[in-house]
Amino acid sequence: MNTASHTDQSILDARARELARPISRRTSAEGQLAVVEFQLAHECYAIESRFVAEVFPFGDITPLPSTPAFVVGIVNFRGRVLSVIDLKFFFQLPMKGLNDRNRAIVLRSGNMEFGVLVDAMHGTRRIAQETLQEALPTLSGIREKYLKGVTPDGVVVLDGGKLLADDALVVRDRTNKGEREP
């Protein structure tokens, strides 16, 4: 490193300063999305922080029979029952087994609340809204349904609001409804 020329060194220094800058400070907060970045299988995803109540490392998960494959099970979330779903099912990603490093991102809005299983957490960052790109042609249909955009570095930003509002994610079985006859 001592042999680097003066100009080279200044180039490297400038890059280092640029790299060191937290992403959130690069531009003003206007048009910025605060997101939580995580990994599903080998892909990088993000969800807007405002829908994320908390990131919760869980130990035991109780699988529930008679539920769709995307329901991983229920966990004891500070004395409450939290259902956890695996988006990998919808995104045609390989469903890995669970391990003790599993975490759930707890999504909450209004009365709806559930956990999304993630394989690894990458932390929070800010994304300039205008840099978000439309769906890539490789994204399958359902992923597009929940898509907010794709960042230039390939992180798929999901729309937490759509996930929370999607009735298709709510398990409501045929029986045991107690509906009154019309």
């Binding site: 890059r15 790299l19 800058r21």
Partner: peptide, 23 residues
């Protein structure tokens, strides 16, 4: 692209230094 690396005193040979990536 490569950036300037902060060297660490007394670090083992395999540690080439530290770099700050967005904090």
């Amino acid at each position: 692209r490569a950036v300037t690396v902060t060297t660490v005193a007394d670090a083992p040979a395999d540690v080439g230094g530290l770099v700050n990536v967005h904090g």
